[in-house]
Amino acid sequence: MKILVPVKQVMDVELNVRVAAGKVVEDGMTLVLSKWDENALEAAVQLKEAGTASEVVVVTVGPESAGETLRKAMAMGADRAVHVLDPAADGSDSLGVARVLAALGAKEKPDLILAGLQAQDTDMGGVGPMTAELMGIPCLSNVTKIEGTGPTLTIHRRGDQGREVIAVTLPALITANDSLNQPRLASLKGIMMAKKKPMDTLTLENLGAAGVAGAAHALTQIAEFQPPAARAAGRKFTGEPEVIAKEVFDLLVKEAKLVG
């Protein structure tokens, strides 16, 4: 079984995010591998370690700096990487990225694609299901457990009525919930080995995907970023628990209509 893991390099949202002149201030932000992509990758590497998968390929559509993310993914256990590096892809919307990934999918023919539930910078959750649709394979989102050795896998996913257990015959695309696993930290040995693992750099033209992605083809565009609405400063109560509990309770009843 061959697994393709699309990963994205994002600004670390754990840091203090600032907005100025309609843009996110990049100064002082570090770039990291998006968290849910770590879960997807960890799942892929575990399938490889279990002998279920024969190869794990990571791919990103992104600028020069995104190469670091691919190295990190290989340090965590991916076998090789594909970097779609092309200024023509800049400003792609979710569908643009999905078209590029689907073009790569047609070339790589993975049995399983493991994507993140959503990217940490966009929180959009569009690229995975779109890629599956374009490739004509089923998509199972928000997956919390993967069992079996293929060609049919049993997956658990969060559904609207509860946990759904679904048998899926590959090829298919899965998006990872963060409860799927605890992503490993890259070991020193992994980091050394990653330096020697192959990384292909491709353009849209190489993929036969020229003219399907990039700002010029994006029907969805971020016009501007704004800071979130500020919350009024709150009050903090310290002291004897029983005393402050009573004090806050009375305030909640009076000011917030706690008992409706």
Binding site: M11, V13, V17, V19, V24, Q120, D121, T122, D123, M124, T220, Q221, I222, A223, E224, F225, Q226, P227, P228, A229
Partner: peptide, 11 residues
């Protein structure tokens, strides 16, 4: 977006 740390105006 960004874990509610920013608001995007999106077209």
């Amino acid at each position: 977006a960004m874990a509610t740390k920013v608001v995007q105006k999106i077209k």
